[in-house]
Each structure stands twice: as structure tokens, then as C-alpha cells.
Nucleic acid binder design. Structure first.
Lengths: 342, 342
DNA sequence: CTGAAAGCGCTAACAC
DNA sequence: GTGTTAGCGCTTTCAG
């Protein structure tokens, strides 16, 4: 491979010292040089196709200009837009992201954090946080800038950006109530994730305040936020002979699983039973009946995380520890007026 | 932030020289030391939570242990599995991936290549290659290990891993023929991409050899591999009054767009017209009618790319310049026997 | 305004 | 077997 051009190469040609070249190429240090020499050096640099060596820069300055992005699984349609959001604010500032998957496995997460450390990332954005997450907590305590995305730790000190789950389920419950539903069942996400936990709390609270029934037999907890668990959970619900007229799901993937289960039982949506989701995955519109759900701002969530991290990187105290992004109810065809009892 | 533990710290405690510590921690250099001192150093290192500084390592050895992964847009469901495939082989060897999006924009691609260079990536996997791609060609000529994924350059020297598009469309055309179809139309992908170009050639060739008609008016070229272009292209086709009884699409997303267009025309699939795709996106099964398509091995494609890159990194001549992965026909409900003319 | 020199943390000859 | 030394490419004091 052809050798890279270095400051030394430029210095030799320009007949100046490397430190002069370094200054000429650094917009904040340029001021101290003769414009003439700055121009000469710049033109030589671009002629030679000089690319600064960030590895050397990083060693010297202890800033790698890279940030770690941790995700449970990039294959989940939820995460790519978040990543683009992060990129949209970090890239213009010269940062690059190193992406790793944790598969919700704490051991793997620990390992990946080590890898990111070794690379000297300047900060960390985690979309893979668990409520109790010793590895992330240690990162935080060691002072490496960290913000969690879409999820949060139980520990309130760790900066986070999440969606307004409370408001989302308030809207869903109110919507169902207005359609005449008085007893619902809930397919919850895993409770070791803040999303799982908070959504369950939100549903309980809002049912109570609306005067809707949510029996404990009508709550089933999925082990993962995915279709197969959505199907399994819904089958459990159906087999238990519940009277609920609507199934509220903690996210869209669970709801799609619920569709499958209901189909197997020969029940129609929303004729026999209504179903709701959370997130508003883009492909949803193609899957009939269109799912009534809550739209979150994925791209914006990523971008906000990046902005918060940026403040942390500049050692500014973040404006606030946690940011809660607004959400919106999207009504489609999966919810209808309560079926009359026969 | 708490200062990182360095070799020097360990050396001081162990009462040896840094180079001794370096050797003790390097499994290939350990042999030259007393087992006793190796053990002592290792235990001190793990006690202190030593993490090697890859930036320093990289500067010294000129190997960053990172590889660049270029993707048009991570938001496209096609790419995440490829990335997991790459990761599955590179990660165990200690490599990490730096992911960048190009949005099919050559200028952005050029920029991202620069960024990756600056980070000193040891190699590059591009899923964003264009048939004529000066920027990638330059990377190749400069000797930076490079392999293109799922797509290839026209220049046959650049290593690539692609799917067997020829065989895929052979299977599709044969399938349609067996259902009685004799005249089809084709929604092609962009011709500046090898996938677009090769699929068009494959369809033409296989129609000819089967004795099926593919009029030039029955070919419409989409500007992007996405749903909106699939819809637009299909509308063009329908408005032109073609006699084709099946619409072959260059990928699944175009086919989903075709579904929308046909729905708007009040045509039923496959009653009035059959539709086929390519790729077999996982969510497809949920969208009725189930799309008949070609399944490619996404994860495996990524993994294969990584393996090829690994050979290149060890300066081994790759076993072959190009790898073509097998594909499989998946028959669902979007194809049926040819509608009888009225 | 520019040069000299030190050093970030690590590896790899080369000594002894 | 282990220590010494040099240096990867860069930034940043300190001189002059």
C-alpha cells in the first residue's frame, strides 16, 4: 500500500518545520502564521492529498474523535433510524461512530464496552441499557461521557433520552375508552428494560384513572420485544378465557405477533377484538389491518442523544439529566368499537 | 475521567521494564519470558483492569484493528443482516467495524472514504459500490484491502461477493413459464448499480431462452430500489396498456410498490396479474398476498465478505476474485396461473 | 512568527 | 530472559 503523506513530508517540501505545518493546518492555530506560508502549506497539502492521521492525533490529544454506539441488535428495524439521527449531528463535527451489538446479553455488553474503551472512544451512546446495568454504571462512574437512548437506567443520574411512554399509553387507553372498551389485556415487554417496566406502569395507571379494568390475569409479560413472544403471550391470554375486548401491546412487534395468534383463533381484528402497538414501524402500513399505534420520533431521538453527548464531551453540565420526547397517536384499522356481548 | 492504566503503571508495580510487560501480555512473545514473571504481570494487569490502548498500538504497528463498512443506508432492511454477518467473523478476531452511510451519493462516498482513511482502517467492505466508482477504484489501486458486498464494480479486478442473480431470475422465469405466462413486464433497478444491470440482463436472457416475450415497452427502469419507485414504475406500465400477465420486479421493495399500484388500478394479485420480487425480506410474509421471491443469504454474504477481506489483510492472494452465493426460489401466493384472455 | 524538543502508549530491533 | 532505545505522526509548550 502506498505510504500515507505525513506532516513531515509536507514540511520537507515547504522547507519549514513540522510544527509549522501542524499550525498551518489547524484553523485555531493558523492565526499565528504568515498568511503566505499558510497558503503555501495548504496548497502543498491538498496537492499531496494529505489526510490527517487521527490515530496519531488521538494518541497525542487523547481524543479519538469516535464515539461508541451500542445497540441490542441492528437487525431490529427500530434502531437504524436512531443511528442515522446520531450520525446527522455527530458527523458534521468530524466524529465517527463505532457500532456494536449486544444481543441483550450482559456479558457481551461488558465485552463490547471493553472493545470501545480500547479504541478510546470519546463517549458512548447506548440503546442497549438495562434498568440495572452494572457495566454501564461503571462507565458512568469512570466519567466517560454516556447517554442512554430510548431506554434508561433506574439510576437517575445517568443522562437519557426517552420517549413519552406515559403519554403514549394515556392516549391509547383514552382512545380505547372512547370506542367503548372497558376491559383490556396487556402484552408487556420484558421488565428488566425501562421500556418494558415504564409501559406496564403507564398502562396500569391510565386504566385506573379511566376506570378501566386490567386484571392481573390479563397481563402477560413477554420475554422479548418480538413477534414470536407477541404470539406466545397472546395465545396464553386467549387460552385463559379473558373477557377483554382489546389487546394493548407494549410495542409493534408484539402486536404483529398478536395478529398471528388471533388469526389462529379465528378472531377478526377489530371485529372481535382490537389491538394496539407502540413505535409505528414504517412497514406497518402494509400489514392489514393497519395497526393503531404510537408514533415516536426515532431519528430525532438519536439526534437528541448526540446533542446531549456533545455537551458532555465539552464537559458542560447537561441542561437536564433526562429528555422526554413527545409522541403521537396514529389511528388505523386495528381498533374499533367494542364488540357487543352476545 | 479516571486515567487509564498503561504498561508503564504495570511495569512500575511489577518492578520490570515496560517492554517486559508488553511481551508478557503478547501471547506470541510470551515464550521468551519466565512463566513466573508472565503470571505476575498478568495478574497485576487484570487486577488494575488494564485495557490495551489500541490507538497507541495502531500508531506503532500501523494496524488499527478496525475495518470500514460502507452502506448506502442502514435504514434499508437489506443491510443490517449483512453487517451482523461481517461482525460474526471479524469480531472474534478483535476487529471492530466503523459504519458509514453513503446515500448512494458519490460525493458523500468520497468523503466517507476519507474519514475511514483518517481512522486508518485496515480494510474496507463496501455495500455501496457503483458499477463505475472512481473513489473505490482509487482505494483499490492504492492497495487498501477492499471487497464489495452484494454489488460489484465493472472492473473485474476488485474482489466481490454477490448473489447468483442469473440463477435467481432463471428460476423466476421458469416458474412463471410453468404457470402459463408467456409475456411479462419487468421493473428494473437503477442501471448504474451492478444489481440493477445484472438483473435486467438475467431477465432478458432467460426470457429469450424460455421463448417468453419481454418487449422493450414492458421494461421500465426505477430510479431507486424502493417502494415509491416500484409504484411509479408499475403505474407507468399499467398506463401503457401492456398485455403482460406478470410483473417481475428487480427486488422486493419494488414489488411492494407494485402491489400499491395494482391496488390503485383495482387489479388483484395473482388473479389478474402475478408479481415477483428478489431478496426475501423477513417482513414479507406478513404482507398479503405473500410475495413469490428469491431468497438470498444475507448474513452469509456479509460473513463471506469478511472472510475474503481477512485473506486480503494477511496479504494472501484471494482464492478467487469473485464469489457468487447460491439463491433459492420461495413460492408464495403472489404468482398464479395465467389469467385467460377474455 | 517559526523552530526545537518532548512525549502520548506502545512495539520491535538490538543489546547484554 | 530482560533492559535499552528508537520511533510511529502528531500537538504543544518553550525558546528565540
Amino acid at each position: 500500500m502506498r505510504k500515507r503523506v505525513t506532516l513531515k513530508d509536507i514540511a520537507k517540501i515547504a522547507g519549514v518545520h513540522v510544527s509549522t505545518v501542524s499550525r498551518a493546518l489547524d484553523s485555531t492555530a493558523r492565526y499565528s502564521l504568515t498568511p503566505e506560508v499558510v497558503n503555501r502549506i495548504n496548497s502543498i497539502a491538498s496537492e499531496l492529498g494529505y489526510e490527517p492521521n487521527r490515530v496519531a492525533y488521538g494518541l497525542r490529544t487523547n481524543r479519538s474523535m469516535s464515539i461508541g454506539i451500542m445497540i441490542p441488535d441492528i437487525t431490529d428495524i427500530l434502531f437504524p433510524p436512531l443511528i442515522r439521527g446520531i450520525e446527522s449531528v455527530l458527523e458534521p463535527l468530524g466524529y465517527t461512530g463505532i457500532l456494536v451489538n449486544t444481543d441483550e446479553d450482559p456479558e457481551r455488553e461488558r465485552h463490547q464496552i471493553g472493545v470501545l474503551r480500547q479504541h478510546g472512544v470519546d463517549g458512548l451512546i447506548s440503546g442497549a441499557a438495562h434498568r440495572d446495568d452494572p457495566a454501564l454504571l461503571r462507565v458512568f462512574e469512570q466519567g466517560l461521557p454516556l447517554v442512554t437512548m430510548t431506554r434508561r437506567l433506574d439510576n437517575p443520574k445517568v443522562p437519557y433520552v426517552i420517549n413519552d411512554e406515559e403519554d403514549g399509553f394515556r392516549k391509547i387507553i383514552a382512545h380505547l375508552y372512547s370506542l367503548g372498551h372497558r376491559e383490556i389485556s396487556f402484552v408487556s415487554g420484558p421488565l428488566n428494560l425501562s421500556t418494558g417496566h415504564m409501559r406496564l406502569q403507564a398502562v396500569k395507571r391510565n386504566c385506573a384513572s379511566q376506570g378501566m379494568e386490567l386484571k392481573s390475569e390479563d397481563i402477560v409479560v413477554a420475554n422479548r420485544f418480538d413477534e414470536s413472544e407477541g404470539r406466545r403471550s397472546t395465545l396464553d391470554l386467549l387460552n385463559s378465557g379473558s373477557n377483554a375486548t382489546a389487546i394493548v401491546c407494549a410495542n409493534d412487534r408484539l402486536a404483529i405477533g398478536a395478529y398471528a395468534a388471533l388469526r389462529e383463533f379465528g378472531l377478526s381484528i377489530p371485529g372481535d377484538i382490537s389491538v394496539t402497538g407502540f413505535n409505528d414501524n414504517p412497514l406497518l402500513e402494509m400489514i392489514p389491518p393497519g395497526l393503531t399505534t404510537i408514533r415516536i420520533h426515532q431519528f430525532e431521538a438519536g439526534a437528541t442523544c448526540a446533542r446531549v453527548l456533545l455537551q458532555l464531551l465539552q464537559a458542560l453540565p447537561p441542561e437536564k439529566q433526562g429528555t422526554v420526547l413527545p409522541v403521537k397517536l396514529i389511528c388505523r384499522e386495528s381498533t374499533g368499537i367494542r364488540k357487543l356481548r352476545d
